[in-house]
């Protein structure tokens, strides 16, 4: 008899197949390729003539090591938006669609724990999101190799792993929202509102009124993906928190912790709600 762990693998492969054949996947892939193409084009054509400044220092005056980190910073800055869109496409309808599309009638009567179904689907959603961001990362690596003649330092790997953590937490977060609703549209709208409106509003209010850095917000902790290269806080326009060094272990640890907490709480909440989900 297949044990629950074996069933988990079967569920992951089933949902992974369904995800990567979906229109959402190809749309995200096209978006990823477009952005990657644009970034590659601008990196190769303009990186020697950038007029942007990093903490008052123009790009051309940066040391070669700082220049390398600045390029990686710019790539990672753009990259951190991709998982959010990916999670919205794959995570927001994850649970609600089972009810709205009536696939719940197909999967709920199966001899499998709902937690296994949820973990399997979450793993598949994270995997397809990671494929999409990895396409971008491949372009990034190739561009870097052409520009600087070598592979980036170990910091690049930290950023890539933090990206995985962010994908897990944002996808888990969208699963939680999705498990609250029975309609996909409500889940989509709620995720967008929460992430782009509520989180940003909270950040601005706390920063401007109380001069308090809302490190506990998922959107803020996600910025660690680029801040490992250069610690510039760009979440709020006009923010004064600038350092030309990469973020140290402290900020990385805090951001990682925040993402883990979001993931754990979201998964726990989604599990409770999904387990009680009924199709009336």
């Amino acid at each position: 008899m297949v044990q629950e762990t074996g069933k988990f693998g079967i569920v992951v492969s089933q949902y992974f197949r369904n995800y990567y054949r979906s229109r959402s996947f190809y749309l995200m892939l096209v978006i990823s390729l477009l952005i990657s193409g644009l970034m590659t084009y601008f990196s190769l054509k303009y990186v020697g003539n950038l007029h942007i400044t990093f903490g008052g220092v123009s790009f051309n005056s940066l040391s070669s090591s700082l220049k390398e980190r600045a390029v990686l910073y710019l790539w990672a800055f753009v990259l951190s938006y991709l998982p959010v869109f990916s999670a919205v496409f794959f995570g927001s309808p994850a649970i609600s669609s089972e009810i709205e599309n009536k696939t719940a009638y197909h999967i709920f009567p199966l001899p499998i724990r709902r937690s296994t179904l949820l973990f399997g689907k979450l793993t598949a959603a994270v995997a397809v999101s990671y494929i999409i961001v990895s396409v971008y990362t491949i372009f990034e690596l190739i561009s870097y190799l052409i520009l600087f003649g070598s592979f980036p330092s170990i910091v690049f790997l930290y950023s890539y792993l933090l990206l995985l953590l962010f994908i897990i937490s944002i996808t888990a977060f969208t699963f939680l929202v999705s498990s609250i609703f029975n309609k996909n549209m409500y889940a989509y709208i709620t995720v967008f509102l929460l992430y782009y409106l509520i989180f940003n509003a909270l950040y601005i209010i706390l920063d401007f009124l109380y001069n308090y850095n809302a490190f506990f917000l998922l959107s803020e902790s996600a910025s660690i993906i680029e801040r490992v290269f250069i610690d510039i806080n760009t979440t709020v326009p006009g923010s004064t928190s600038i350092s030309l060094n990469g973020a140290g272990n402290g900020p990385i640890g805090i951001a990682a912790m925040v993402m883990v907490i979001y993931a754990v709480i979201s998964i726990a909440g989604a599990l409770i709600l999904f387990d009680r989900k009924e199709v009336k």
């Binding site: 197949r17 009638y105 197909h106």
Partner: peptide
């Protein structure tokens, strides 16, 4: 494990 069912009008995952 030993139950098969059709409840209402079930739908399947469209890409499978």
């Amino acid at each position: 494990r030993t139950v098969g069912s059709i409840i209402e009008q079930p739908e399947f995952y469209t890409y499978l």
